[in-house]
Simulated assay, not measured.
Amino acid sequence: MAGASAGPGSEIVIEAERVRKTFVQRRRIAGQRLRRERIDVHAVRDVSFTVRAGEIIGYLGPNGAGKSTTIKMLIGVLTPSAGRLRVAGLDPAHQRIALARRIGVVFGQRSTLWWDLPLRDSFELVRHLYRVPPGQFRANLARFVEMLDLGPFLDTPVRQLSLGQRMRGDLTAAFLHDPSIVYLDEPTIGLDVVSKAAVRAFLAEKNREQATTIMLTTHDTADIEQLCQRVLVIDHGRLGFDGDLATLRERLGGERTLVVDLAAPMPPLTVATPGAHVIRVDGPRQWLAFPARASAAPLVAEIAARYPLVDLAIREPPIEDVITRLYTTGPEPRPAAEPAAN
């Protein structure tokens, strides 16, 4: 993957154990002007996971699933209603200032920069806030200006920057103090193709060079496929999946596609491989669908033995289809508790 580093280390830097977050709302009772009833909204329910140093984690889920609430608990903005959280060995809610020096945060829809100041001055304020040594600050800023092409608008007030320029500025601000952990909430939302590519390349390089642990929430499936070594999927506050993309695709089934290039146009191929069938024909090229959990080898061998084959390729099911299927099927059921021993 583009974002792969030398590999995650053995150190656990984020630990969540049966974490919950419940918000209390008051709603007026129909027909009664003064009385209101209490409603508990369970934003996060018994979420448990660990993240090792150097991992890039995709934290996925539909709107309202609990992603941003989890991130806010991890950075100490919100306090869990129950459960245990540790980030870099610290309790985020009670050691927030100490933790702030170890982490970076980017919220795609809210800038951390100073709106009326030139971008360069915003970076200077970040340096003072995090007490970054001058030499380290100059070296990092020069490197980020080169990587993210910030030079042409360093002296432009933040309010005059385009969305893509501002996002590159926010990323720079988040990484200036060399954090060991960075949280990104929709970092490519609304960006054009060029800006997205720049953001992904920057994140991949920081992970590769410094083993920075990155946890990002995103609806952009290209972010997931190009950056993430592992994905967590949350829906209705519960964690439904924790693993790599290949496992997610395999677990949820669906179909893969075998694209076959023949020596000459032919009618739709007839194959005996269970579950395989032609879904499209375009001249000498034909597309055959087969179950995602099945091996492609029998189908390939059959076509090679029976037809004049020139080339072939296997296409995995689109990741957006896989994730949508997980959202609609819901989280995996928890295993039943074993009976206590007599």
Rank of each mutant, 00 (worst) to 15 (best):
P187E: 03
P333M: 04
L113Q: 04
G243C: 09
T50R: 14
R256M: 03
A98P: 11
E37G: 10
G83N: 05
R230V: 06
R306Q: 15
I29P: 08
A340D: 11
G64A: 07
P8M: 05
V182E: 00
V310C: 12
R131F: 10
P265E: 13
D242G: 06
C228W: 04
R251K: 14
I97E: 13
R200G: 02
P133S: 07
Y327F: 14
G151A: 15
E209H: 09
S48F: 12
R52I: 03
R20E: 13
L258V: 03
A65L: 09
S195V: 13
R143N: 13
R96L: 05
S122H: 08
A246I: 02
G64P: 04
Y59T: 03
P62I: 00
R35D: 11
L309C: 09
R306L: 15
I279G: 08
A336W: 11
V126Y: 01
S195E: 11
T328R: 14
H42E: 15
V13N: 01
I12M: 08
P318L: 02
L78P: 05
A82L: 09
T79F: 07
I75W: 06
L245W: 01
P335E: 12
D116V: 07
V19K: 01
Y59C: 05
Q109F: 09
Y327T: 03
A264V: 07
V233P: 03
V310M: 08
I181L: 08
Y327V: 04
G61I: 03
I75E: 07
K72P: 05
R166E: 12
D242N: 14
H128F: 10
D235Q: 09
N140Y: 10
N140V: 08
G253A: 05
E205W: 13
D321N: 10
Q136F: 07
S68H: 08
L176F: 06
W115C: 06
S10Q: 14
G76T: 10
N342L: 15
G9P: 04
T79S: 14
L34M: 07
R293H: 15
N63W: 08
